[in-house]
Amino acid sequence: MKELTLFTMKGCPHCRMAREYMRQLCEEDPGYAQVPVNEIDENENAALADSYDYYYVPCYFMGDQKLHEGACTREKIRKVLDTARNA
Rank of each mutant, 00 (worst) to 15 (best):
2 K>Y: 09
3 E>R: 10
3 E>H: 01
3 E>D: 01
5 T>P: 05
5 T>Y: 03
6 L>N: 04
7 F>T: 00
7 F>W: 03
7 F>Q: 08
9 M>R: 12
9 M>Q: 08
10 K>R: 14
11 G>T: 10
11 G>V: 02
11 G>M: 12
15 C>R: 06
17 M>Q: 15
17 M>S: 15
18 A>D: 07
18 A>K: 11
18 A>I: 02
18 A>S: 13
19 R>C: 08
20 E>D: 07
20 E>P: 00
21 Y>D: 04
21 Y>R: 03
21 Y>A: 02
21 Y>P: 07
22 M>S: 02
23 R>G: 01
24 Q>G: 03
24 Q>R: 14
24 Q>D: 08
24 Q>N: 09
26 C>F: 03
27 E>P: 04
28 E>H: 05
28 E>F: 01
29 D>S: 10
34 Q>A: 12
35 V>G: 06
35 V>K: 09
38 N>Q: 04
39 E>D: 04
40 I>A: 00
41 D>S: 00
41 D>V: 00
41 D>I: 04
42 E>R: 12
43 N>R: 02
43 N>E: 09
43 N>L: 09
44 E>C: 00
45 N>F: 08
45 N>R: 01
47 A>F: 10
47 A>T: 14
47 A>S: 14
47 A>N: 13
48 L>S: 01
49 A>W: 01
49 A>D: 03
52 Y>K: 04
52 Y>H: 06
53 D>L: 09
54 Y>E: 00
55 Y>E: 05
55 Y>Q: 06
56 Y>G: 06
59 C>Y: 05
61 F>R: 09
62 M>L: 12
62 M>H: 06
62 M>T: 07
63 G>E: 12
63 G>P: 03
64 D>W: 06
64 D>T: 15
64 D>C: 15
65 Q>D: 15
66 K>L: 15
67 L>R: 07
68 H>C: 12
68 H>L: 15
68 H>Q: 14
68 H>A: 14
69 E>V: 03
73 T>E: 11
73 T>V: 14
74 R>W: 04
75 E>P: 07
75 E>T: 10
75 E>G: 05
76 K>C: 09
77 I>W: 05
82 D>L: 12
84 A>V: 12
85 R>L: 14
86 N>A: 15
87 A>M: 11
